[in-house]
Computed example of a mutant assay.
Amino acid sequence: MKNHVQPVFIDPTTDEGFKRLFGDKVNLINFLNIIFRGRKIITDLTYRDTERIGATEEIGKVIFDLVVQLSTGEEIIIEMQTSIQTNLKQRMLYYASKVISDTAPKGNRKSWGYAIPEVYTIVLMDGFHMPGGDRSTYFHDTCLCNRDSGKIFYEGLGFIYLEIINFVKSEAEVEDELDKVFFMLKNMPTLKTLPRIMKSAVFQRFFQLASYAKLTKEERTMYDISLKRKWDAEAVRMYQEGQESSCNC
């Protein structure tokens, strides 16, 4: 059991931290604009009232998500995962496909003409590596493309993975806005003050909402529960990894 010292900022990779920071529309718009790196300029979005198509809170497999629709019609799944999932890539393809299929009308498909929305899945991966991935890469931006030429075949189905564990840059090594997002996600719960590189209004808003001191008594209780859940998941994962290492000896 970890000693629970009162933090200055909450952990954005917990359920309550994730919902508090990314449940704020301005924060989420700013985050998405950084993640899309100028490919899309997002000005407004609507949170979808979903059945949390990917959510589970089993010990060792903690996942929480948001589904939003941009004002331009695109659908985006934003998900936080704190442990490796079986068939990770296939699982996200399934959920993206479900979002697409749910937009199809029950009848009159001919007049509809398969006018499907663009769907993007953004996965924040905390504490584990991409299966078979390059551990020197922390940002994965993928879409359908020609295998030989690399030319994009279809832009409207995208998968973006933030492999937080692979980000090892110090504050002095941070290069751009995307790096700042990674630095924030990885280091926020251990920081004592707002970092010098986070002085812009975009990041100040994130840290203002993340202030532990500004949480109500009820919010603190809910956050502490979600933090313990994360610790429990980490303990289970470490035990499982230890068992696997022993078996491979």
Score class of each variant (00 low, 15 high):
Lys2Leu: 15
Asn3Pro: 10
Asp11Leu: 04
Pro12Glu: 02
Thr13Gly: 02
Thr14Asn: 01
Asp15Phe: 15
Asp15Leu: 14
Gly17His: 00
Arg20Ile: 11
Leu28Tyr: 15
Ile29Phe: 12
Leu32Asp: 04
Lys40Trp: 05
Ile42Cys: 03
Thr46Ile: 15
Asp49Glu: 12
Ile53Leu: 10
Glu57Phe: 15
Val68Ser: 03
Val68Phe: 09
Gln69Ser: 11
Thr72His: 11
Gly73Cys: 03
Glu74Phe: 01
Glu74Val: 01
Ile76Leu: 08
Ile78Asn: 02
Gln85Ser: 13
Thr86Trp: 14
Leu88Pro: 08
Gln90Ile: 01
Ser97Met: 01
Val99Trp: 03
Ser101Trp: 05
Ser111Val: 12
Tyr120His: 02
His129Trp: 15
Arg135Asp: 11
Phe139Arg: 11
Ser149Gln: 03
Lys151Asn: 12
Leu157Gln: 06
Ile160Arg: 06
Tyr161Trp: 15
Glu163Thr: 02
Phe167Pro: 10
Glu171Asp: 06
Glu173Ala: 10
Pro189Asp: 01
Leu191Ile: 02
Leu194Arg: 12
Ile197Ala: 01
Ile197Gln: 00
Arg205Met: 06
Phe206Thr: 09
Phe207Glu: 09
Gln208Cys: 10
Ala210Ser: 08
Ser211Leu: 12
Glu219Phe: 09
Thr221Val: 09
Leu227Pro: 00
Lys228Tyr: 08
Arg229Thr: 03
Arg229His: 05
Asp232Ala: 03
Asp232Trp: 08
Asp232Ser: 04
Ala233Ile: 00
Ala235Asp: 10
Arg237Met: 11
Met238Glu: 07
Glu241Gln: 13
Asn248Ile: 14
